[in-house]
Structures are given as structure tokens and as C-alpha cells.
Computed example of a mutant assay.
Amino acid sequence: MEKEQLRERLASAASMPKDVVMKAAVVTAVGNFEVCIENYRGITEYTECLVRVQTKGGQIRLSGKGLRVEYYTNDEMKITGRIESIEFADGRNKE
């Protein structure tokens, strides 16, 4: 945990974005129909009602209807559909 605090202080002192220094996930929502996630590690579950994405800091869980991964690259993905909720769980929580 001390490493993360040091990185956060470094990012703040150097005026660098935290997502760059800490490799934090960046989640951008456009209404309730589109979400882009950057800096992710992988997709752990994918159905039309649930998409779970693993990140360095834990897991992002999108719930809804008609969910679809429109595209994904090594750095970014776009999920569309009727998004009803976005949940974040740190790496210590197990489902």
C-alpha cells in the first residue's frame, strides 16, 4: 500500500495524471448506453446482462440489458447496451 501512496504523491507533485503514474483504470460513461474503459487487464465475465472487467486495482462490473463489447484493444474497450449499474470492487474482495 505504501507504493501506491508514494505513486499518488509523485503524480500530484509532478502534475501528472494519476491514471498514467498509477496505471489506474479510466471509466468514461456516455449516458446509460456506452462505457469506455482504459487501462484494464482482461474480461473475466461477459454475458448480455453482465460484463466484469479486471483492472490493476480490482474489478469493474457493468450490469444491464443487451450489453455488448463493441471493440477492445490492449488498452481500451467500449461496451454498449442499456447500462443499469457500474460497480467497483477492490482486489481484496472475492465474489
Rank of each mutant, 00 (worst) to 15 (best):
K3H: 10
K3D: 15
R7N: 11
R9E: 13
L10Q: 11
S12V: 11
A14V: 14
V20K: 01
V20P: 02
V21R: 00
M22I: 03
M22D: 03
K23W: 02
K23M: 06
A25G: 07
V26D: 03
T28N: 03
A29F: 04
V30P: 06
V30S: 08
G31Q: 02
G31F: 01
E34Y: 05
E34D: 07
V35Q: 00
V35D: 01
I37K: 01
I37L: 08
I37E: 00
I37M: 02
E38T: 02
N39L: 10
Y40M: 00
G42K: 01
I43W: 01
E45I: 07
T47L: 05
T47E: 05
T47C: 04
E48A: 13
E48W: 08
E48Q: 09
C49Y: 10
R52W: 03
V53M: 04
Q54R: 14
T55F: 11
T55K: 08
K56P: 00
K56E: 00
G57V: 05
G57Q: 10
G57P: 13
G57S: 13
Q59H: 11
Q59E: 12
R61E: 07
S63F: 09
G64M: 01
K65R: 12
G66E: 11
L67I: 10
R68A: 15
V69C: 03
Y71R: 13
Y71D: 06
Y72P: 04
N74C: 06
D75Q: 04
E76I: 14
K78E: 08
T80R: 11
R82W: 12
I83N: 00
S85Y: 07
S85I: 06
E87L: 13
F88H: 14
A89L: 14
A89M: 15
A89N: 10
K94G: 15
E95C: 14
